[in-house]
């Protein structure tokens, strides 16, 4: 097993392990925040360009600081807790959405020798942790005690559970090919990107990942033309902001997994590994954004039919073919 050099080095630069942990957590939280700021800016620019607008231009160079200004506004807003909510659930839901993110990010190998944790089953752990998102959404919807929020939460649970199955089925062929559940090993094993041999698995994974992150055209839990704002209807200020942060961090996570499993991770010519990694991740995110600004929204039953009648059978066939080919 490859030794996670960077982590070891990282932790050895501090004498006190607690300071090391604090520094690592701080770095991850910093990444989450800066990533969300930059992604929101990117989304605005992508949408603006697709809609023949300029997007933010005034605050900072190319409007880069616009989101920062918005965050300041959001932080300054009053946190309203409506009277009719189930207080414990309502208050804990944003925390639940946010808490797994640091753990998830720490599992991602960014470069050949840059990883916080690496052990045998990072992939399993990562997929398991990303399932926690549903609980947060459901807690928010249920705790809000609002019909629109509840409908959004119910939709989110059904959708996330349905799309987790094709997502996992699309990942298994890669695991079979590399005989490893470690993200670092899977990425290292790719002398060529696995998308070349598993294009179908990649497409299934990417569609399911878009649905898992509740992005359009699968943004049914927060479909604003039907459900006002879905599960976060009753949230204001930074509590709403935390859901937003979680959404954008989740996008990074699913796209990073796609990069590591199908696109060769940090591998690429000339540029350093972590640069390649981020180019690939943000490239995939840009594709997701183009989806959002291109398609109308699916209806809920059509979404479920799509998962169970098309994606799951396709993923199973793909898995079967992979097994047969590997055995030959």
């Amino acid at each position: 097993m490859t030794a996670p050099h960077a982590t070891t080095q990282f932790f050895h630069t501090f004498d006190n392990p607690w300071i090391a942990i604090a520094a690592a957590t701080g770095a991850l939280l910093g990444f989450i925040t800066i990533n969300a700021l930059w992604l929101i800016w990117l989304e605005r620019k992508v949408s603006a360009r697709m809609q023949r607008r300029y997007g933010p231009t005034e605050v900072g160079p190319f409007g880069l600081l616009q989101t920062l200004a918005d965050v300041v506004k959001l932080v300054g807003k009053e946190l309203i807790t409506p009277d009719h909510v189930h207080r414990p659930l309502y208050l804990i839901a944003p925390i639940l959405a946010f808490a797994p993110l640091a753990a998830l990010l720490s599992l991602l190998p960014i470069d050949a020798d840059w990883v916080f944790h690496d052990f045998d089953i990072t992939l399993v752990l990562l997929l398991a942790f990303s399932g926690l998102n549903v609980i947060a959404i459901f807690a928010a919807g249920w705790g809000s005690n609002n019909k629109y929020a509840l409908l959004g939460a119910v939709r989110a649970v059904a959708q996330n559970i349905s799309y987790e199955i094709p997502l996992l089925l699309a990942v298994i062929p890669i695991v079979l090919m590399t005989r490893s559940l470690s993200l670092h090993e899977i990425a290292s094993a790719q002398s060529y990107p696995f998308i070349l041999v598993q294009p179908l698995a990649f497409i299934i994974y990417f569609i399911s990942a878009t649905a898992e992150t509740n992005r359009a055209p699968f943004d049914i839990p927060e479909a604003e033309s039907e459900l006002i704002a879905g599960f976060h209807t009753e949230y204001s200020g930074m509590r709403f902001g935390v859901f937003f942060l979680a959404e954008f961090t989740n996008m990074v996570i699913v796209c990073a997994v796609a990069t590591l499993l199908f696109l060769g991770g940090w591998k690429g010519p000339l540029l350093p590994g972590f640069v390649w990694f981020f180019i690939k991740v943000y490239g995939l995110i840009a594709v997701m954004m183009v989806f959002r600004w291109t398609f109308p929204r699916l209806r809920f039953d059509q979404l479920m039919t799509f998962a169970w009648a098309i994606l799951v059978p396709l993923a199973l066939v793909n898995l079967l073919v992979t097994i047969v080919v590997l055995k030959l």
Partner: peptide, 16 residues
Amino acid sequence: YLLDLGGFTPFLYAFD
């Protein structure tokens, strides 16, 4: 109408 169906972009084109 497209906005109702969740498509944002046509709205801007039509308004243009």
